[in-house]
């Protein structure tokens, strides 16, 4: 991919423990192009958020990037000096956190938080930064933006606060935005508004978005491509329609099968037996093999690599091929 803004190659993140390093992220690679939304899905603890944290350079000890590289518009950013990386954050990569209620400094007016962010990255006067702050709040759909600059975070509702968080993440006009569960903490009706806002902003600004979520509904609405993570690895990646409609990896298929659907005539949701292994107990071979109903002897010794099937890629020795009626449910 030549037009990729963000490119992650063979990323490995380890946590130092007394009994040696634990691999939380085990060799993942992906690209995101300008204007593209890559959804990253998986169960809790699969490493989604940690990957996002690594992209923005905020992995904290005892965690560290052990190998691999992260490139932003061709420039390697995973090994930048501390202060250089700080200038990348906010300016070139923005991040939206899960909980808008706790993401804003409760003691500072939101106008000051916006102006502070803008002026950190751009040589603007206070008045110019203030104008931009008003513009940003208007862009994310906050009514009476100029007056709301003087308000503190607690004076906003959850949905409005998430809009403020988005405005802050976009304050310096980043090329890449990492959105970590941006709608999880919100009411369903507000979720739809925030999704629509994110989609519009992505289109208008041509940003590359890494959207981390466990909500397949959100992915289906907004993402162009989706990466499915399991135990620190990407097990399947490809265009959303392909991955949702015709999953190749048994884990993806299981994930799709466990989504409630109004049209479904199944009495029960299907569930994947067992749970994701802990970091210190990841089985040899394919990490999913103990829970997989298609497991082969080979899966228990050899680790499958991503292989292409049409437009998607899956890491499986016995992928689901053709149309499986059960999966489409």
């Amino acid at each position: 991919m030549t037009d990729s803004v963000l490119s992650v190659r063979d990323l490995v993140i380890e946590f130092a423990t007394r009994r040696g390093p634990l691999r939380a992220i085990d060799g993942i690679s992906f690209d995101i192009a300008k204007g593209e939304v890559l959804g990253v899905v998986g169960e809790s603890g699969a490493g989604k958020s940690l990957t996002g944290t690594a992209v923005i350079g905020l992995v904290e000890p005892p965690g560290r990037i052990a190998s691999g590289e992260i490139r932003l518009a061709g420039r390697r950013i995973d090994n930048l000096p501390r202060d250089e990386m700080r200038k990348v954050r906010g300016k070139q990569i923005g991040m939206i956190f899960q909980d808008p209620l706790t993401s804003l400094d409760p003691l500072m007016k939101i106008g000051d938080q916006l102006i502070e962010t803008i002026r950190t990255h751009a040589a603007m006067t206070w008045a110019q930064a203030r104008d931009r702050a008003v513009f940003l709040l208007e862009e994310v759909g906050i009514p009476a933006a100029a007056e709301r600059l003087m308000a503190h975070p607690h004076e906003f509702s959850g949905g409005m606060r998430q809009r403020v968080v988005i405005a802050l993440a976009l304050a310096a006009g980043p090329d890449v935005v990492v959105a970590d569960e941006p709608t999880t903490a919100l009411d369903v009706s507000v979720q739809a508004q925030i999704i629509a806002l994110l989609r519009r902003l992505t289109r208008d600004h041509g940003m590359a978005v890494m959207l981390i979520t466990h909500d397949m509904g959100v992915i289906a609405q907004i993402a162009d491509r989706v990466a499915v993570m399991y135990a620190g690895r990407i097990v399947e990646i490809g265009p959303v329609r392909e991955v949702i409609g015709r999953p190749h990896h048994p884990y993806t298929a299981g994930l799709m099968g466990s989504i409630p659907s109004l049209r479904s005539d199944h009495a029960r949701l299907r569930q994947i037996p067992g749970s994701m292994p802990r970091l210190d107990a990841i089985p040899q071979g394919c990490a999913f093999n103990p829970r997989c109903d298609r497991v082969l002897d080979r899966c228990r010794v050899e680790r499958p690599q991503l292989a292409s099937f049409d437009r998607t890629a899956a890491a499986c020795f016995d992928p689901i091929l053709g149309h499986d009626a059960e999966v489409r449910a």
């Binding site: 905020l58 700080r86 300016k91 991040m95 993401s103 500072m108 950190t120």
Partner: peptide, 24 residues
């Protein structure tokens, strides 16, 4: 979270430590 978010916005350490953290 708001300190993590302040870091993610690329604020300087000084702003994070004194303007946001100490005040809180």
């Amino acid at each position: 979270d708001y300190i993590r978010f302040a870091r993610a916005r690329g604020l300087t350490d000084r702003a994070i430590h004194f303007r946001h953290a100490l005040k809180n």
